[in-house]
């Protein structure tokens, strides 16, 4: 068991790819940086998908394990501005960067 207390719980049990990741992305958008999202899933693909999603979106996966036939994941919402944090999920990142594209030294 983990001693992390979640701020929000997403029950994605019974859902298959890509829905657990799609729903997690939607849920985490409603959290403040530093808050924790707990996700329960039964899709075995989530074991590979959630760590990859966490890295891509900058919402670190704190821990995961199996619990009574379910996979349970804990993510901390990123965006606190720490090193290596590419920011929170959303389409803003690419548009925000494009104006400076030509001026890179």
């Amino acid at each position: 068991m983990t001693n992390v207390k979640e701020d929000r719980l997403l029950d994605a049990r019974g859902l298959l790819c890509p829905m657990p990741v799609v729903k997690a992305a939607k849920e985490i958008r409603g959290l403040e940086p530093g808050q924790v999202l707990k996700v329960m899933a039964t899709d075995r693909g989530a074991i590979a998908d959630f760590p990859a999603w966490a890295e891509d979106t900058g919402n670190p996966l704190l821990e995961w394990h199996e619990e009574g036939g379910s996979l349970v994941f804990w993510f901390r919402k990123g965006g606190l501005g720490g090193a290596g944090d590419p920011g929170s999920p959303g389409p803003t990142a690419s548009t925000g960067d494009s104006p400076s594209e030509g001026s890179v030294k």
Partner: peptide
């Protein structure tokens, strides 16, 4: 559809 929605969920455009 699976790949594009998963890409959007991963913060991609």
């Amino acid at each position: 559809l699976i790949l594009s929605t998963a890409a959007a969920a991963a913060g991609m455009d």
